[in-house]
Write a protein that binds this DNA or RNA. Structure first.
Length: 485
DNA sequence: ATGTTC
């Protein structure tokens, strides 16, 4: 058993490790999980979340969500809010894949209408959306035009005809984090990124055709408000981020911070992977701006992919995509740092929130939400493994204590290496097809790594976030087609 | 996650 003996149970879905657990902790660590999910977490989670609790300027608690697992420096599933004046910013608290995120798109088609053309549809998506490591997109950009993508995000897509105003409205922050300045980006990052717009990537990135079956709708009223109102309605969910561009931004600044952290700022961290800089320092501010460039590139990436998905559906079903009801439910990031206003000890304050493998989940009335979601709370998209389904949820008022944050996915229980040794991709593909799920992939090895059995149970994760008051389940979405890298 | 080891 990996669970520290010092842990105390605050509620059936919340656990706390006190500051006395480890020298240097400034705040307690809190983990949202059932006893079962807690017991499935690797020891690295407890080690890392308590390391995060020692970072300068951290406020309230270092959090970990129920899908938490070991990551680079911070656990994946981590949440850390810093005082912007005294605190640090850490790339490890955001992740290498900056603005990795989820997008959910409606159709007005039913499973019965899509099934006969499923193979054709998935094959065409696989042909039109580049997948795999190092893949390139169809949008031809000069390096300076790419700088505009990085600064403008989805707004650049709107100008180029790849987005509607409604798409922008249904994206977190309108698809553009303000304050992105491409002068903080290295040439190397631009070289890696400028031809990657509209590409899915590899690993757990995918584009899925899913069905909202009536028996899987948890809250019919919220489902209707989110546009799910036909029995067996088909939706499209996809998961990807900022590709090699964001990876290079993270690499560049991790290295820069390591060179100045101790020498220039006297910051000592217990793990080099917690490389950081004061938020209010030239290096910290440059990273925050560069990170926003990667955030915006990822929003634009998902927007161009949506444009292609609409083209494919339009070709296959011989109708305009908007006649097919292809409207976005929402696009939400799960690897970012943001300045947000939250109530801390009874006072409204601006704080710097790191969310790494955790999702913003504003409750009803949350600021900046589109008017249509003012009463429902923000749509939250939690992606499961490709075999087991995903969830649409809604932010809840009870999320305030966790800075309105919830889980992001299933969370691995088995390492990629272990999964590759345990499963065979070609057999998995045949098994999935016999269960009515048609999957296309660039790499059978990559497919084996994503086997459902290598992940936590998504139903338990989603239910735990609801019991903890973080996000209410709206509908469970079952995959029938999948393309992955 | 990632031109999967600068």
């Amino acid at each position: 058993m990996n669970i520290p003996t010092a842990i105390t149970k605050i509620s059936p879905t919340l656990w706390e490790i006190p500051v006395s657990y480890k020298e240097g902790m400034l705040v307690p660590a809190r983990i949202f999980a059932t006893e079962k999910l807690l017991s499935e977490m690797d020891a690295g989670v407890f080690d890392q979340v308590t390391n995060v609790a020692s970072l300068p300027g951290i406020l309230k608690y270092a959090y970990c969500m129920p899908d938490g697992h070991w990551g680079y420096g911070f656990p994946i599933g981590g949440v850390a809010a810093m005082d912007p004046h005294t605190g640090v910013i850490s790339p490890g608290g955001i992740g290498f894949d900056i603005n990795c995120g989820m997008r959910l798109v409606l159709t007005n088609l039913t499973e019965e209408e899509v099934r006969p053309r499923l193979h054709q549809l998935v094959d065409r998506l696989f042909a039109r959306i580049p997948t795999g490591v190092g893949c390139h997109g169809f949008v031809r950009l000069s390096e300076s035009e790419f700088g505009q993508v990085a600064e403008q995000g989805s707004r650049w897509c709107f100008k180029r005809g790849f987005a509607t105003q409604d798409d922008l409205d249904m994206t977190e922050e309108g698809g553009c984090f303000a304050g992105a300045d491409a002068s903080h980006i290295s040439n190397k990052a631009i070289q890696r990124g400028y031809n990657q717009l509209g590409t899915l990537g590899s690993g757990n990135h995918y584009c899925e055709i899913q069905v909202a079956r009536p028996e899987n709708v948890f809250d019919a009223q919220l489902a209707r408000a989110f546009g799910i109102d036909i029995p067996n309605q088909v939706v499209v969910m996809f998961h990807c981020g900022s590709r090699g561009f964001g990876h290079q931004v993270a690499t560049d600044y991790l290295k820069l911070f390591l060179s100045v952290m101790e020498r220039k700022y006297g910051l000592k961290v217990v793990d080099r992977e917690l490389s950081c800089a004061p938020f209010r320092s030239p290096e910290g501010e440059a990273y925050f701006s560069a990170m926003k460039c990667a955030v915006n590139m990822a929003f634009a990436n998902r927007q161009v992919i949506l444009h292609r998905i609409r083209e494919v559906f339009s070709d296959i079903f011989q109708r305009d995509p908007f006649n097919l009801g292809m409207k976005m439910v929402y696009d939400v990031a799960h690897n970012t740092a943001k300045l947000e206003r939250h109530e801390i000890d009874g006072k409204q304050r601006e704080i710097l929130i790191h969310r790494k493998g955790s999702t913003r989940a504003f409750g009803p009335g949350g600021y900046g939400l589109p008017e249509c979601y003012a009463k429902t709370g923000q749509p939250v998209i939690i992606g499961g493994s490709m075999e087991t389904g995903s969830y649409l949820l809604a932010g809840m008022a009870g999320g305030a204590d966790a800075f309105f944050t919830t889980a992001h996915g299933s969370g691995r229980t088995m390492s990629r290496h272990q999964a590759k040794k345990t499963f065979r991709g070609d057999k998995l593909q045949r098994d999935m097809e016999s269960r009515g799920l048609y999957v296309r992939t660039d790499s059978f090895g990559g497919l084996a790594e994503e086997a459902g059995a290598a992940y936590k149970n998504i139903d338990e994760v989603a239910e735990t976030t609801e019991r903890a008051g973080l996000s209410r389940r709206v509908a469970r979405l079952v995959p029938i087609g999948n393309i992955k890298g």
